[in-house]
Amino acid sequence: MGAPHSETVVSTRVSEPSCATTALSAVYLDGVGKSYGALEALRSVSLSISRGEFVCIVGASGCGKSTLLRMIAGFEEPTTGTLMVDGQVVSGPGPDRGVVFQDYGLFPWLTVAGNIAYGPRRRGIGRAEVKAVVERFCGVVGLAAFADKYPHELSGGMQQRVAIARVLANGSGVLLMDEPFGALDALTRSSMQAELHQLWGELNSTILFVTHSVEEAVYLADRVVVMTGGPRHDTPGHIGATVAIDLKHPRDPTSAAFNARKRELLAAIEAEPTVASTPG
């Protein structure tokens, strides 16, 4: 589309993690690639996320956002490169990284309280303490009145709150969210965004959040990672640009500054996909 570059001064840069950031980073990727047989889904992804940072990932369908998140979660292994969380090489899923799935992934045979208590129970925490944790996080996501309901008795938005409460209650320092609000209506979605942002401020967790919505990214993120490529572009998925969003919270989506960031981000997304650099 060749959108003219706007007059905003926010920098667009490709992050260059150095060894010095490793120890400080909550999530650290260096030259990470992923192939499924002959298909190279991701190539040479380098990214460093600080503790307490809120990072959004945007990009066209098929550019490998989910694949990236699933590797950080430990569900899949990178084919090349280094992947560390809190200074430890990732070797499988673990309770230090809470995942919120787009389709919730709640246990249908457990109540809301049972789902939230699941993680703490696995850690062998005492009954009374588990009860306190469940009460606290039911309250945090506004579901105190629904603690004894089963997931199928709740709306999509409520189920997604349970899924978020479940990872928060497990004390996960890193939250990995793959289009968690994709299935929600606009109204529920914007209230969930505000709540999530508030929770993030209170709990001081690191969040990596995949979304298709540019507005959602500008509203939530400290930094937006734009991914490009994918099989449709004949080049493996990779990071095209990183855009810092230096707006104060609470952000007003109708403000001029907000829309300037949106335009900048859109321009970065619509830019011709660069050719992924060969791993080196």
Partner: peptide, 17 residues
């Protein structure tokens, strides 16, 4: 559903459990 396995794994379920 494989999703439930993933959910259990990321919440700290031991593989045997």
């Amino acid at each position: 559903p494989p999703r439930l396995m993933e959910a259990a794994d990321m919440l700290g379920t031991k593989p045997v459990a």
